[in-house]
Simulated assay, not measured.
Amino acid sequence: MPKMVLTAEYISIAGNDLSEYTRKGELKVEVEEKDVTTYASLGWKELLGGLKSGELSMEVLQDVAATKIDSIMWPLLGTVVPFEVRLSQAAASASNPKWTGFILIKGWNPIEGGVGDEAKVSVGYPTSGAVLRAVA
Rank of each mutant, 00 (worst) to 15 (best):
W44H: 05
V29M: 11
V81K: 10
L18V: 06
K106V: 00
L48S: 00
V5A: 11
E33N: 12
E112A: 12
I72F: 09
T22Q: 05
A94Y: 12
E33P: 09
R86I: 00
D63W: 09
G116P: 12
P82K: 07
T127L: 13
I111V: 11
S93L: 05
P82C: 06
E9G: 15
I13T: 14
G25I: 11
G25F: 13
A91P: 12
G43S: 07
W74M: 05
S122G: 06
R23H: 09
V135P: 02
I111K: 01
D63P: 02
D63A: 04
V31R: 05
L48V: 13
L48Y: 06
V64T: 08
E26Q: 06
E46V: 00
L56N: 03
K45D: 03
G43Y: 08
K106I: 01
G43E: 06
P82T: 03
W74R: 15
E59A: 04
G113F: 02
A119H: 01
S88Y: 11
E55W: 15
P126A: 04
M58E: 03
S95Q: 11
G129Q: 01
T127N: 12
L42C: 01
E26I: 14
T37A: 03
G54P: 12
G107Q: 03
K45Q: 11
T127S: 15
F83H: 04
V36M: 09
D17S: 13
S19G: 09
A91Q: 05
E30A: 07
L104P: 10
S128Q: 13
G107V: 02
P110L: 03
I103H: 05
P126T: 11
L104A: 08
V5E: 04
G15S: 02
A136H: 15
G54V: 07
V81Q: 08
V80W: 08
A119K: 00
D35Y: 15
G129E: 00
W99D: 00
P75G: 06
I11D: 00
S88H: 02
V36N: 14
F102T: 00
N16W: 12
S128W: 15
P82H: 13
M4K: 13
A136E: 11
W99G: 01
A90H: 02
V123R: 09
L56G: 02
V135M: 11
S41K: 00
V60C: 11
I72S: 01
R86C: 01
F83M: 05
I103L: 04
A136V: 09
V131K: 13
S93W: 09
G25C: 14
I105N: 07
T37D: 07
V123L: 07
A92N: 02
P97A: 08
A90Q: 03
W108R: 03
G114I: 08
T79F: 08
L51K: 12
G116D: 15
E30P: 03
L6C: 07
L104Y: 13
S95E: 12
G129D: 06
E46Q: 05
V36I: 14
V29D: 06
T100M: 07
V36A: 04
K120I: 03
W99C: 02
K120R: 13
L48M: 06
M4N: 03
P110G: 01
T100C: 00
